[in-house]
Design a protein around this nucleic acid. Sequence first.
DNA 1: TAGATTGTTAATCGATTAACAATC
DNA 2: TAGATTGTTAATCGATTAACAATC
Lengths: 216, 216
Amino acid sequence: MKKQHISDAVIRRLPRYYRYLDELHTRGVVRISSSTLGKRMGITASQIRQDLSCFGEFGQQGYGYNIMELRAEIGHILGVDEPRRLIIIGAGHLGHALLQNFDFVQGGFRLDTAFDVSPALIGTSINGVAIRSMDELEDYCAAHLPAVAVLTVPKLAAQETADRLVALGVQGIWNFTNVELSAEERVFVENVHFADSLLTLSYRIAKAPAGGKEQP
Amino acid sequence: MKKQHISDAVIRRLPRYYRYLDELHTRGVVRISSSTLGKRMGITASQIRQDLSCFGEFGQQGYGYNIMELRAEIGHILGVDEPRRLIIIGAGHLGHALLQNFDFVQGGFRLDTAFDVSPALIGTSINGVAIRSMDELEDYCAAHLPAVAVLTVPKLAAQETADRLVALGVQGIWNFTNVELSAEERVFVENVHFADSLLTLSYRIAKAPAGGKEQP
DNA sequence: TAGATTGTTAATCGATTAACAATC
DNA sequence: TAGATTGTTAATCGATTAACAATC
């Protein structure tokens, strides 16, 4: 039964399902039951069926799920089948790393261009993607209407740049700046807080008995 | 009342508390009540008090919390006050970005060295941190016993490298490879799955009514 | 058909919020 | 002292798990 409201917990599991299904698909596996998938992912079969039922009925009694189909369904739910334009703001080391390594296409995005303030970078291109001056941002966005901006600028420029992007109508900001942006009225913000992530690891180590991880 | 088991939800909020308190401290604010902090962070005062009560009693009736003290307490809980050695495995673009930009000291870590397989990188240093050959990994770890390894190697090398690190006794792996590591017996793994993060953003945009974010 | 496995309803568990006595 | 705000207990809410009829 399709649900109106989808909880955050479910949403955050969707990409994981997608990743596992994609891998099974690549390996040529054709079908899978919720209990087999659950064992592999370390979650219960109930949870998988409950999660999927938020979006529709994708399985078949006595059979399970067709992997190719389910993968496509979840891909559709995640929106990977309607490519959206994406720009990168800040071509420093991190922006560079994403330009070079990250597969935006697989996520349903089309990486159009990048922006930076450094004269040494402006006019060059990385991995086939042109780097433009931040001065061109307004014109570029007006012409190409990117849906998502990746924010990899220095901390101090974060809020100001985000405000600019919101004014230009981007729908989502993928925020790597470790700054809590206050612009969440008209835009979706997904934060990647490196520091928070590392600190949770620090906590677990600090809490573990000396000499190693505690047995679960 | 101190609790035995701390839920994951609480643990993941701790770094956020720490971040906010750190910022308030830097700005010279001396005290804060749970309700003021809650408003600022967008969570309830109840939740803050409930969370903190897992670890002890840090406030004072009628006053609130002393920011410097509470910051120090949470820092202690997170283990930032007992510096641990950290190494980076893979000095490609992402490793490079972390070497250059990330403040490991603030997280209670001491960035000792980095490893890579590229002859062009081995022997150089980035931001004062030497880059060594992966061949030296075993000797180095035996001598210096790093607590945490940052994994920024290509996908294909991820599992193998993780196994090596676990065998060498690291206590935590900060995993940037987007591979689900199966080594979680003797080590803590904290995953930074860029792809998952971007896909949740994709989902929200796909689901939002055309033209903008839905009102909350 | 018999066995397997779904989608869904009900039960349980855990996390968040509210309420309030204690007290600075 | 009076007002403010804590830590904690109780109430609520939501998410996970279990159970099972439906059915491929």
